[in-house]
Design a protein around this nucleic acid. Sequence first.
DNA 1: GATGAATGAGACTTCATTCAT
DNA 2: CATGAATGAAGTCTCATTCAT
Lengths: 225, 225, 225, 225
Amino acid sequence: MKIKTFNPDYERGMVITMMECAKMPPKVKAVYRAVIALFVEGADLNSLTVAEIAGKAGIGKGTVYEYFKNKEQMIAGALFYQMKECCENVYAQLAREKSLYDRMNKILLNMDKERTEISFFIRALPVMMDNSTVSGRLRELWKDRGEEEAPVMELMRRLIEDEVKPVKELNGKDTDYLILTVLSRIICYAVYRFGGRGGLGLDEETMRERICMDICRDVDSIKGL
Amino acid sequence: MKIKTFNPDYERGMVITMMECAKMPPKVKAVYRAVIALFVEGADLNSLTVAEIAGKAGIGKGTVYEYFKNKEQMIAGALFYQMKECCENVYAQLAREKSLYDRMNKILLNMDKERTEISFFIRALPVMMDNSTVSGRLRELWKDRGEEEAPVMELMRRLIEDEVKPVKELNGKDTDYLILTVLSRIICYAVYRFGGRGGLGLDEETMRERICMDICRDVDSIKGL
Amino acid sequence: MKIKTFNPDYERGMVITMMECAKMPPKVKAVYRAVIALFVEGADLNSLTVAEIAGKAGIGKGTVYEYFKNKEQMIAGALFYQMKECCENVYAQLAREKSLYDRMNKILLNMDKERTEISFFIRALPVMMDNSTVSGRLRELWKDRGEEEAPVMELMRRLIEDEVKPVKELNGKDTDYLILTVLSRIICYAVYRFGGRGGLGLDEETMRERICMDICRDVDSIKGL
Amino acid sequence: MKIKTFNPDYERGMVITMMECAKMPPKVKAVYRAVIALFVEGADLNSLTVAEIAGKAGIGKGTVYEYFKNKEQMIAGALFYQMKECCENVYAQLAREKSLYDRMNKILLNMDKERTEISFFIRALPVMMDNSTVSGRLRELWKDRGEEEAPVMELMRRLIEDEVKPVKELNGKDTDYLILTVLSRIICYAVYRFGGRGGLGLDEETMRERICMDICRDVDSIKGL
DNA sequence: GATGAATGAGACTTCATTCAT
DNA sequence: CATGAATGAAGTCTCATTCAT
């Protein structure tokens, strides 16, 4: 069965960049949007059915197989595509906040809200770390793009560089470590929120405050290095 | 369809403590061990089949339904059971290390080895955060034990209290937040290792050093509060 | 799991009238015919399997679930559908007989032949009276059509009204009771034939004569009321 | 596997007469009673499980296979055994009623009540007429006892002979036919009650009155022959 | 003799994928 | 191009029956 290619890389990696986005057939876009919509609505990615996806995308079940070899490609592709786009949007949204503290607080605050781009990030994390076929495919897509950073990392990097670069030029390793530290603090909040509070006695308000403050301190200490 | 109970709490929460372990019917143990074995071998928890589990456990497919209401109970139960046992073992292992730095370093080093109890934790995290039936069931088990902390949290707490208590009495909130901070640093390494390195230029050795140092600093700063 | 509807009432009652028969998807017809065929061949309705039904219908096992929610719907629907159609046919057949006596005799004679529409009725009676899921579903179909009579009753009513109306106008209750009386005499023959003769010394010929005569007497006595 | 025989006929027909009842091992009795109890409570005979039966009988699931070759033997045996005993009891009960009318009315009135021996009769009828393994086995038991009448028929015969014999000696054929006629009137009420009223406008009170009256008339007309 | 733990055959049902229209 | 009807592989779960204790 021949797949409608719209890009030479497609067959192999189905890699979508912003530029490729324009070339993407509308049905592919529709499928991606459908997967994301269902995911954001709370569906478990592992139990999504092709029927659901096609239905939500408003196209025939058979049609999706004109554009995708199998279900995993749909889901992995959608996550990958969304990650990129999402990062742009989140970055744009955060740019409107005044300070680093506010930006981080916004991330944490938005995590709870359904249908937020930020909550999408958090909920997508486990999918990227398990051993399912989808995550495997997703990691392939990643690898095929070895030169670029994972979108989440890139987002973090941009947020941090915006903060630090005007003040001080940093070596790569310090920045990289800072990125991971900040990301891990955010994940920490996610674990606290979604992974069952785990018996801790902290309220969310306090949690957010402390985390944002600590992130700011992490960044400041680098600035002063 | 009566389930063979081996403990009054079983039906409700299928909660297993060390003491209950003795009372656990051997077939239940076998199923748990099978699930964990398959998981550690790299299987995706969401696509485990009852046939696989029963096969690995060396018992008949029908037999597992004498002890479990459905597949989700098997998997969630196994994870839950393993979490508890795992924590005990990891704690015991770490006790042999001289300093907090060494203990943390050991955790991180173990993470790299496949088939390590610690790598089990990391790989189990996503399962606890997605929206699958298993994760739902797992959270129920959690809730049914509201009085107890999540095992990972408890492990962290013990490690930290062992360090801090001899020196200074701490209020609950500070300890709780410290637990999360330390956990987040560990997760940070996990993201670095498993989440697709994402183009970062740090080598593992350096990562571990920095993380352990930071953890020690976090703890020390609390001590000196 | 959307079911292919072919009629607005379908989802709710799966009610099939002669007119609806045309609109019925061929696969639904095939399933109904398969169930009836198997039933007439002597299969026990309670132990029919979906595989058997699909096989007999000449379609894939999965296909039947495009048209039916579950096995019970197939069987109950088939019985219901056959009942209606059967009544029409029997009525048409009987119209060719000269007298009420001959018509009743024909019913009884047909009962002996396997694979007769009338024998279908008799064999279907127990299914309607037991406590199986199928009978439950069948009674639901019935209820959903509260305004209409059960097809057997309707057949009886028509046979009797054809006989009586030309002579005398009857009140509803008398007709209703007469219907049941006539039906009971027919059941009487069925019990004699199928219920294990139970040691009775009557031969079939005599049985039929007496029953037909009694039915005629019942009807005549109403006429002369 | 050897079956515990308690009677030479057992292996073949498992026939139980009143006298054999004494010899019947208590576990067999318990199983029979359990089946009947479950049946009277409304269970569908086709979906009874061995576990249910053994549980209700208060004996081990394995134990029943010491006394029965398979599930069908349990159910068929129970029905057969109960039919005989039941007939005795119903006959005794009815003897207390003053007139034939009252006796018939009692039958009809009891039909509705759960846990009545009479309702057992009616509900057992369909089982005897379908094509299930149980009904097959039941008919075998019947045949093995060819010399005796079906218990229901015998009950009817006794009721009618009690009425007619004192007045007039009858030839066998007339009595036999009368038996069937009376039985069919009773079944008719059962169909009306349980088989979905079928759209008839008659209330139960009237139905019973008419049926009893007609039965009395049937019997009287024979008396006066 | 009695038991119930163990089992595997087989039932129902879902769903990714194909293919004729 | 697009579709959705058709399908069979595969999964979950039930339960009659066996057998070691």
